[in-house]
Amino acid sequence: MTRISHQWDDADVCEMDILDHSFLNDLVPFTKTFSYDGEHQLNNLLDSEFSERTAYFLLRSGKKSIESIIKSVETYSISSFDITEGLILFKLSFRTHAAAVHEINLLIIEKLLPMGLDKAIQGFPRPRITGKESTRGKEPDYSWCPTRTPRSSAHVKTRMPTVALEVAVTEDDKKLNSDVRYWLSPNDGNANLCLTLRINPINNEIRMESWARKDNNDNKQRARIDRTQVIYVHSTQEGRPIVTGDLPFRIPFESLMLRPIDAQTAAEQDIIFSQADLEEAARSIWIAEEEEEE
């Protein structure tokens, strides 16, 4: 069994290439990577790494083994895979992680209720999404799309996320940036927007970001990803959340629903998270973290 382990420093990357030919291979120099040696070895790895609260690790193997492993949906916690690169990513979810996902989904539904659109979207916890070639795939922590795709939409695949969410508790920015690239790449997730929550459980800090693809009209193969918003939530010594950054946090209506706002419907608007919304969500996330530590 071969193991490669490295450490990295967090990098605050605000703009990225998305159409690079690599995916999980970018993570190999920076995280634990093991060579696959059978199902027994994998089960031992899952037990040992996750008992140590390892955020994620990579498994390298051949095409047939990877195809066999990714079919075992209920057996393994697979976050991402790339058959061409011969890599599978296994990710551990914490209680804090689940609480954050729950809070964001609740906020989106809450904002759609006054518009009468709470039934007009479908939310998917951890659906496996494959790219055009079906050789690599990923599970978002949560994703949303319209219940019915508008006929005028260029969004070809039905049930593909229009907005994806990734939550990181102990993962590094390198991993989070890889997630963002996957969801916004036209050849992979093809989402319109990717939301990320980076939670620092040591000092109760949360960084929430939105990312969107910025096409290059001169060269479509050189599209970029822009960080369109970033918000920080810090905790005071008294446990009171302090929100700073690009307030309010906004999810464009058309990015989610694949159609413009209906000018005849006064209630329709962008999905907006106020400062109070984010403060309340942060409290719930920190409570979950406290419960997990006990």
Rank of each mutant, 00 (worst) to 15 (best):
D12E: 10
D17K: 08
D20L: 13
S22W: 10
S22I: 04
D26M: 12
D26C: 13
V28E: 07
Y36H: 01
H40T: 14
F50K: 09
A55V: 04
L59T: 03
G62P: 13
K63V: 12
K63N: 14
F90K: 12
K91A: 11
S93T: 09
F94A: 14
T96L: 14
T96Q: 11
A98D: 15
I104D: 00
I108C: 11
I108N: 08
P114G: 05
D118R: 07
K119C: 11
P127G: 15
R136C: 12
E139F: 02
R148W: 02
D172A: 12
D172M: 12
Y182G: 15
S185V: 02
S185I: 01
P186M: 05
G189H: 00
G189F: 00
L195F: 02
L195G: 02
L195H: 03
T196Q: 09
N200D: 11
N217I: 01
R222K: 05
R224I: 05
I225K: 09
D226H: 15
Q229E: 10
Q229N: 11
V233T: 09
Q237A: 11
R250D: 03
S255H: 10
L256S: 01
M257N: 03
E279P: 11
E279F: 07
S284K: 10
I285V: 14
E289N: 13
E293G: 12
